[in-house]
Design a protein around this nucleic acid. Structure first.
Length: 661
DNA sequence: TTTGCGGTCCTTTTT
DNA sequence: GGACCGCAAA
């Protein structure tokens, strides 16, 4: 059943539509029901696109659509994907018009840092990251290197613009794109090539965008072009949940939508189906000080529920112990499942003390949003081979593959090979097949390179006829990867763990290739955008640890929001002071965290926290958000007793810890 | 010329 | 706890 506002949002098909969806107001429901309504109105499944920002959101949307639609096949034909995946699709099909081969590689953030170090001629990763950040901002704002250079405020910016120019040339040479290009290049393509744009307009007749408040300039422009002149789209968003300003998202896109589309229908969803009123009051108290674009008031039919709890703790370890005892109370006291609880925090590194405490207490947990599966070195190693196989122009992939495992090829040889390749105007991998190669590198090195080339060539030769999973295993066998892992891990357990990750990847690739009926090369092209493998390996019943960013869109019955300290949430430091707009975004982040909770919410503050130079850490004030929210809470009771219990427990635990280490 | 080892930094958020 | 750099040995 849909409520009145939801029904209006679903039924409105005549023109552009903006749905302001408060937290927990059922926006995914609106989107999936609208898809069903569009199908009933005569749209073909392939003509409907639903665009999200994360793979997780796309996966959930797909699942919900499948549940709702009777025809499984219909659900499969829907285009439900992330903005970036859509960009990849457009570029794979039509990128030739921009000089991009269909097998182009997608570089991840680390690859980009490495490339910028080269392009900028520095070994300093800090410098490279600074350039990376600037270039990404420029790209999101749709500038080109010339405009960036012209508008550079200082020498630093001017230098970044020059580096960008060289970096972009390198990308072109490697037939590679970065994440920002996945938005910028499709946009340029549609702007410059009318026939391509018209084709996509005919193909995608209705577009739904989730989390619209997170769109960047580039994404907004792309959306406008895809929606075409008759503007058949529904944007769903919430100005209070915009938390991606740092990667180019701008609330301006939400503000300007009624101006750009005067016939825009705006519908607000204000009934919350998720949380108790105690939690909603806390959420409202936090967000109240922010300016509003579309004012709304969340309400819920759920009762008041339990009061929100605030805990002051001595430090991160103490905080972690408090969390553990709370989790145990939830489990023991009310028979909660571990999976009904989440611990949220601002920055990834905050998970560490919490993980340690959970391990000691034997509480199962999963960390979401931290280091993703595909960030692991062993996975990146294997992916380098896959990328090289798919795209021989990908020099960064070649460099990683050819040096992992070590095969007697070092820096000097690679430098010579690079020069040789440049001279012939081919990629480094292709240079291996040139007859003149032995003249440029040492005899032993030449033999090593040749063998490497033969191996990959052989795999490629059989790529069409043999199953992807088997072929990949054979490749790993050929390079002796398992024993290399053994030699390069600190202990056998770690080696086994890493090898099992590699096996998971092989399984996944084998399965995916069979499902889609394609070979290894084709799979390799899709791997770059995937950040997590499917259900496999997932813990059955475990507490979730997550950053606030990664928690967006999710919900749990019980939520603990850790580290509510000035400087941590809102996050700032002497080097990175907080601007007005920065504070507003931090506030929205807090709001997102609070609104993840269904039944109970606990917030904690550390009086001391590591870092800041001095031994023993530095003192922390409670977050100003806590102060705002606390005004609304009854005074805490029974505190001293709980404290005594905790301290006794901590003593026991530290004794155990000493034994362990 | 290549490789492995140990000391030294640093830690925002994601596709 | 991790990534990176410089150094010393094969």
């Amino acid at each position: 059943m849909l409520n009145a506002a939801q029904e209006r949002a679903v039924a409105y098909l005549q023109g552009p539509c903006l749905v302001i969806a408060g937290a927990g107001s059922g926006k995914t429901r609106v989107i999936t029901h609208k898809i069903a309504r569009l199908l009933r109105a005569g749209y073909a499944p392939g003509e409907i696109a639903a665009i999200t920002f994360t793979n997780k959101a796309a996966a959930e949307m797909r699942e919900r659509a499948r549940d709702l639609l009777e025809q499984r096949q219909t659900a499969q034909q829907l285009l439900i994907c992330t903005f970036h995946a859509l960009g990849v699709r457009i570029l794979r099909e039509d990128g030739q018009a921009l000089g991009l081969k269909p097998q182009f590689s997608i570089l991840d953030s680390d690859d980009v840092t490495g490339l910028l170090r080269e392009a900028g001629g520095t070994t300093e990763i800090k410098q490279a990251r600074a350039w990376q950040w600037r270039i990404s901002q420029w790209k999101s704002a749709l500038l080109d290197p010339r405009q960036a250079a012209a508008g550079a405020a200082d020498a630093e910016a001017a230098q970044a613009a020059r580096v960008w120019e060289r970096y972009q040339q390198a990308l072109a040479a490697y037939q590679a794109v970065d994440f920002d290009d996945l938005m910028v290049l499709p946009l340029r393509l549609l702007q410059q090539h009318d026939e391509v744009r018209q084709r996509w307009n005919r193909r995608l007749r209705y577009i739904l965008v989730d989390e619209y408040q997170d769109t960047s300039d580039a994404q907004y422009q792309l959306l406008r072009l895809l929606a075409g002149d008759d503007a058949r789209f529904t944007a769903v968003g919430d100005d209070d949940q915009s938390i991606y300003g740092w990667r180019g998202a701008t609330l301006e896109n939400l503000r300007r939508l009624p101006e750009d589309y005067p016939n825009l229908e705006v519908i607000k969803l204000e009934q919350n189906y998720r949380s108790t009123n105690a939690i909603l009051r806390a959420a409202n108290a936090v967000i109240a000080s922010n300016p509003k674009i579309y004012p709304k008031r969340l309400w819920s039919e759920h009762g008041d529920g339990e009061p929100v709890q605030v805990r002051d703790t001595d430090g991160e370890e103490d905080e972690a112990e408090c969390i553990v005892s709370r989790l145990q109370a939830l489990r023991g006291g009310r028979g909660c499942k571990w999976s009904e609880v989440a611990v949220l925090y601002r920055a990834n590194h905050q998970s560490r003390p919490i993980e340690q405490a959970l391990r000691r207490a034997n509480i199962p947990y999963v960390v979401s949003g931290g280091q993703s599966f595909f960030d692991r070195t062993e996975i990146k190693d294997v992916c380098a081979y896959l990328r090289l196989l798919a795209n021989p122009d990908d020099d960064p992939a070649f460099l990683r593959a050819v040096t992992t495992p070590r095969r007697g090829i070092g820096a000097a040889t690679l430098k010579a090979l690079g020069g040789f390749a440049a001279q012939w105007k081919v990629s480094m991998f292709e240079a291996l097949f040139r007859d003149a190669l032995p003249g440029v590198v040492g005899a032993r090195q030449a033999e090593g390179l040749r063998e490497f080339a033969r191996l990959l060539h052989d795999i490629e030769w059989r790529e069409r006829s043999e199953a992807a999973g088997d072929l990949l295993r054979e490749l790993l066998q050929g390079i002796g990867y398992e024993s290399w892992l053994g030699d390069n891990s600190d202990n056998p357990r770690e080696a086994a763990q890493r090898w099992s990750h590699v096996n998971d990847l092989c399984d996944w690739i084998g399965r995916k290739a069979t499902e889609d009926g394609v070979g290894l090369k084709r799979i390799a092209q899709t791997v770059a955008l995937i950040t997590q493998l499917g259900e496999r390996g997932q813990q059955q019943d475990a507490v979730t640890l997550s950053t606030l960013h990664a928690a967006k869109g999710l919900e749990w019955p019980h939520v603990w929001l850790a580290g509510c300290d000035e400087g941590m949430l809102p996050l700032y430091s002497d080097e990175r002071p907080l601007s007005d707009s920065g504070l507003e975004e931090e506030r929205r982040l807090m709001y997102v965290g609070v609104t993840r909770a269904r039944q109970t919410l606990s917030l904690s503050h550390c009086r001391r926290r590591r870092g800041g130079g001095g031994r023993g850490g530095r003192a922390c004030e409670p977050s100003r958000f806590l102060t705002e929210l606390r005004a609304d809470l009854p005074a805490a009771g029974g505190r001293s007793e709980a404290l005594a219990r905790l301290q006794a427990m901590r003593k026991r635990l530290s004794a155990v810890e000493t034994q362990e280490s």
